[in-house]
């Protein structure tokens, strides 16, 4: 049986699942990374966001075949990093989490945005998070949280 191997949160893992299986399903069911959420299942809500080779992608759109020999990071991996820790703290200080369903995806998108633009304007934050839907917060607190992380995390990104 052929195997698909990749680096998941800094560890080499492999799976015998078929390469057309969605990455989100493998992450949640086989590797138990349930911080990766399924909202829409079609690329529109961002709840399933992960990093593929350090870039934000929707894991519901990524077939397993695409990640072979590549690097994936989920919210579980991000939250172990200084950047992840600071983002989580900023989200909680700004009250940016209500039901929390969108939060893992929002954090991934926030991190990815700050990687590209360490000191974003509010507009750049909104564009950076434009693929992530939140039904609870009205977004303002989330934008504030990213701004706070950017200010407090000078040099981290």
């Amino acid at each position: 049986m052929s195997k698909i191997t990749f680096i998941l949160n800094n560890k080499v893992v492999s799976t015998t699942q078929h390469p057309t299986v969605r990455l989100i399903d493998v992450l949640r069911e086989e590797f138990d990374y349930t911080g990766v959420k399924e909202g829409c299942g079609e690329g529109e809500c961002g709840a399933c966001s992960v990093l593929l080779n350090d870039r934000l992608v929707n894991s519901c759109l990524v077939p397993l075949g695409t990640v072979h020999d590549q690097k994936i990071m989920t919210i579980e991996g991000l939250s172990e990093t200084p950047q992840g820790k600071l983002l989580i703290e900023s989200y909680s200080k700004e009250g940016a989490v209500q039901c929390g369903f969108c939060t893992p995806g929002m954090l991934m998108a926030s991190h990815s945005l700050l990687n590209e633009i360490p000191n974003p304007t509010d507009l750049e934050i909104k564009i950076g998070l434009s693929g992530n839907l939140c039904r609870c917060t009205g977004y303002n607190m989330i934008v504030n949280a990213v701004r706070r992380a950017s200010k407090e995390g000078v040099g981290l990104w």
Binding site: H18, D25, E38, C60
Partner: peptide, 19 residues
């Protein structure tokens, strides 16, 4: 299959079912 953004949505038969 390249970025798969069209294919994964088009071939999907229903939520959580393998394309």
């Amino acid at each position: 299959i390249s970025g798969a953004t069209d294919l994964m949505v088009q071939r999907k038969k229903g939520a959580e079912i393998t394309p």
